[in-house]
C-alpha cells in the first residue's frame, strides 16, 4: 500500500501534475453538475419525488444554518451545502472499487479548510467591517489576541486533521482487512465507513457554519458549541 501522505501524479497537463484526488473531484464535479442541471430543469410548485428530495436537502441545510447562526441562511447556503455535499460524496466514493476518496488526501482537506478559513474572514469582514472583525480578536481583552490568532489557525488545522484522519484511517483499515481477510469481511467495515463519511461531512459542514457564525456577529452562537460535536 502506498504511503497515504505521498501523492504521485497520474499525468501532467503541461507543468501541472494531475493527481487522483483531482481526477476524482472532477468526476464528482461533472456528475453533480449534470445531475443538478437535469434534476432542477423542471421544477414546479407541485414537486415530484426527486424535487422533494432536493427541497428537503436545501431545507435541512437552511434549518441547520438558521439554528446555528441565527441569521437568514440564503447567503451561506451555497458554501455550507456545497461543502457538505462534496465531502459526503467524496467520502462515499470509496465504495467504488479502485477509487480512493479525495478527502483521504491531505491536500483536498487542506483546500476545504482553507476555503472555510477564507470564507470566515470574508463573511466576518462583510458583516462587521474590517475594523469590527479585527476587534473580535481582542475579545474579551487584548491579552487574548495571540490566543485568538492561534485559535484561528488551530481550528483550521483541526478541520484538516479531523477529516483527513477519519477518512484516511477508514480507507487504510479497509485496505488492510481486504489484504488479510478476503471478500466479505470488510463489508461491515465499509458500512461503518459510510456512516463515518456521512458523520464527517456533517461535522465539517457544521463546524464551518459555527466558525462563520462566530465571525459574522453577536447573534451567532459561540464556537464553544463545536465542542459538543463528535470528533
Amino acid at each position: 500500500m502506498d504511503n497515504p501522505l505521498t501523492l504521485e501524479p497520474l499525468f501532467h497537463a503541461g507543468p501541472v501534475p494531475i493527481t487522483a484526488p483531482v481526477l476524482v473531484t472532477w468526476a464528482i464535479l461533472i456528475g453533480l453538475a449534470l445531475g443538478c442541471r437535469i434534476a432542477t430543469r423542471r421544477l414546479s410548485l407541485t414537486p415530484g419525488r426527486l424535487q422533494v428530495v432536493l427541497e428537503l436537502f436545501v431545507t435541512v441545510v437552511d434549518d441547520q444554518i438558521r439554528d446555528t447562526m441565527q441569521r437568514p441562511p440564503a447567503r451561506y447556503r451555497p458554501l455550507i451545502g456545497t461543502i457538505f455535499l462534496y465531502v459526503l460524496i467524496a467520502n462515499w466514493s470509496s465504495l467504488v472499487p479502485g477509487i480512493e476518496p479525495p478527502t483521504a488526501r491531505l491536500e483536498t482537506d487542506a483546500a476545504l479548510a482553507l476555503i472555510v478559513f477564507a470564507a470566515t474572514v470574508w463573511f466576518g469582514i462583510a458583516a462587521q467591517g474590517l475594523r469590527g472583525y479585527l476587534k473580535t480578536f481582542a475579545e474579551p481583552t487584548w491579552v487574548m489576541i495571540p490566543l485568538n490568532l492561534i485559535e484561528q489557525v488551530s481550528r483550521t488545522l483541526s478541520l484538516v486533521v479531523r477529516l483527513f484522519g477519519n477518512v484516511m484511517s477508514g480507507v487504510f483499515v479497509i485496505g488492510i482487512v481486504l489484504t488479510l481477510a478476503g471478500l466479505l469481511v470488510p463489508i461491515p467495515l465499509m458500512a461503518l465507513d459510510l456512516l463515518t463519511g456521512a458523520v464527517q461531512a456533517y461535522i465539517f459542514a457544521v463546524l464551518a457554519t459555527v466558525f462563520i457564525g462566530a465571525a459574522v456577529g453577536e447573534h451567532s452562537p459561540s464556537p464553544e458549541t463545536a465542542k459538543d460535536l463528535p470528533q
Binding site: V22, T25, A33, C36, A111
Partner: peptide, 16 residues
C-alpha cells in the same frame, strides 16, 4: 493538488 482542489471546490460551489 491543493490549489487544484481548492479551485475545484470553488467551481463546484458556483455550479451548485
Amino acid at each position: 493538488t491543493l490549489g487544484l482542489q481548492a479551485v475545484n471546490v470553488l467551481v463546484l460551489l458556483w455550479i451548485l
